[in-house]
Design a protein around this nucleic acid. Sequence first.
DNA 1: TCCTTTGGAATTTTT
DNA 2: TTCCAAAGGA
Length: 728
Amino acid sequence: MELFQELNEQQYKAVTHGEGPLLVLAGAGSGKTRVLTCRIAYLVEKKGVKPDEILAITFTNKAAREMKERVEHLLGGGIKGMWISTFHSACVRILRRYIHEIGYNNNFVIYDESDQLSITKDIIKQLNMDERYYPPKAVKAEIGRAKDSLIVPSDYYKMYRDDFRRSKIAEVYDLYQKRLQQNNALDFDDIINKTIELFTLKPHILEYYQKKFKYILVDEYQDTNKAQYLMVKMLSKGHRNLCVVGDDDQCIYEWRGANISNILDFEKDFKDAVVVKLEQNYRSTGNILECANSVIIHNRGRKEKRLWTRQGSGSKLRWYQAYNERDEARFIVSIIKEMVGEGRKYSDFAVLYRMNAQSRAIEDALVEMGVPYRIVGGLKFYDRKEIKDIIAYLRLLVNPQDDVSLKRIINVPKRGIGKATLDVVEKVAGDMSCSMFNVLLKEECQGALGTRAAGRVHDFAQTMLNLMAFKVSASLVELVEELLDKTGYIQMLESQRDKEGLDRMANVQEFISAVKEYEEINEDSTLEGFLENVSLVSDIDTLEEDYGSVVLMTVHSAKGLEFPVVFVSGMEEGLFPHARSIDDPAGLEEERRLCYVAFTRARQQLYVTSAHQRTVYGNTVYTTVSQFIKDIPDHLIEQIGDRDKEHIEDRGKGDNRIIKLSEVRKKDTAQDKPKFNPGGKVEHARFGIGTIVSVSGTGEDEELKVAFPKLGIKQFIVKYAPIKPVEQ
DNA sequence: TCCTTTGGAATTTTT
DNA sequence: TTCCAAAGGA
């Protein structure tokens, strides 16, 4: 296989490793995906391992998909039966088959974060606990932490018997698990934990998979939590052919339960493990690596390694110290425009930030200067209210035991079923230990309600029953359309004729397209399958290689990606490193790893920016430069821009790269109507549709005053391009 | 039950 | 600043 010849010595060693445990410490950009895919190909081609004897685990669907494609390419097809998937999909696959053995129904639904929160909140109320002392979010996080470490409620209680607060949380945790089971639902942690439970309680099932998977490979091993670690350990016990690949310096999810000691202690755990270090970097220039190294070197708990490259050192890191976040944003965008003028594509650039909230200023500047961009993360499509509502309806159709979904939609749209009614239904359900939907169906239980409420409840139940009947013979799209109509949901959206209503409508349409697409791609498409897909897919999974746009995202989202030019913005104490981590040594180490991840995304040019003052939550604060910038030796940095020399606040305005309103008008008058007249409508990129109050100035100085009454904006001055005329 | 007002909190989020 | 959820009034 000629592809193997392109491997360096270390890579080759990892790829051709025979039997037994293998740890590959793969620095950023050192070709770890290549090693993984080649190793799989090697096993099949040279070692005669059958595809269905291989289990390869990744963290994201995107990574799984890419790995699948690459392996398929290397082998020229023939990977049928190979499991290349995320932890979660692999476990769901197992559980769909066997979970009935441990007291769930195989058609379980998957609860997301907000479902978890609403259950936690419910239980806190039910136990009459004070939400001020037990903030539901904190309690949920605490429960999550316990689950990540595989601590069951009874153990949790024993551990914290003497801690009053935690014993109360133990109670919540216990009820939380019971509630999930009653609802026939699993949360993300359960997907792993219940698989382990299944393996523990039903050894013959474990044995089956142990025998089946002769070779197990795990990517991003530094981000596994205790449960995932144990699952891998259990499965690999049969053949002990476990290959894990990861980089302790890129563990950035410790706060979510990732356990960095999994990778640090691998050799203790598997005494005969072979360790291969990949330190040659194929991605970045020497200077970029030097910068990344100079930051990460301050971490104590890490495996010694140092990235190097055969590439030249490249240009220095460029650091712009802006006046404020608007100046910072304009700087970034103007550099992008400049470099695009010199022949780069927009998709060569990524702008990274620590917090989603930072995207705002950057977006404004991009819009103002007419640069196409895409945001990854933030509010996910499937997290939008209207989409979650539809999904709740669908879930209820699949799994009538799902009280959380029922409560979400029983009064959306308004059906006159309020809190009082729901409380009664919930109480009865509790007494009879059955689901709330079941209660709605029972005549005698409706006795507990007034006639009016009983009638409304009955109507709702009947609608759902009809849909369940309809579901049997209809396609998915038909079902969704019927649902939207018969529940009155679409009518509700139609009656809301403002920008928000239109947006929602558009989202619903997009949702229907997604359903359609799912149906087309999957031959044996089922509602259950679709819902599962929805639960397990994220935004980053759909990031296409070349979108012709600049990409904006958090540093977390950028892990695993690379771009020719990267901007890391907001390099300030309190922001990056974040204030929440700054006092805690472990937290600071994680921030440092995050910074390392950010820097190593860049292939050719890395920019960092900081602002002297920044408006955070409405008030403006003066900032200090990030310690991470100070970690970088002077000879690697080139500082550009200086607040003493420039008056910065409105620097962008005199900049001829900004599209003037007059130019917009010129374009539109080509179709002969002057569009900017008082009373006319325009659409603003952020504020939506507004009415022109007045037009003043001419040529270069033209400006509009626009009112956006919906937003309470009486006059907004628009001088540059984030606006376009709207046909009346 | 529904609508408006008010107050408090506000990282990161592969699944 | 901006978002959300709880509380209070109609």
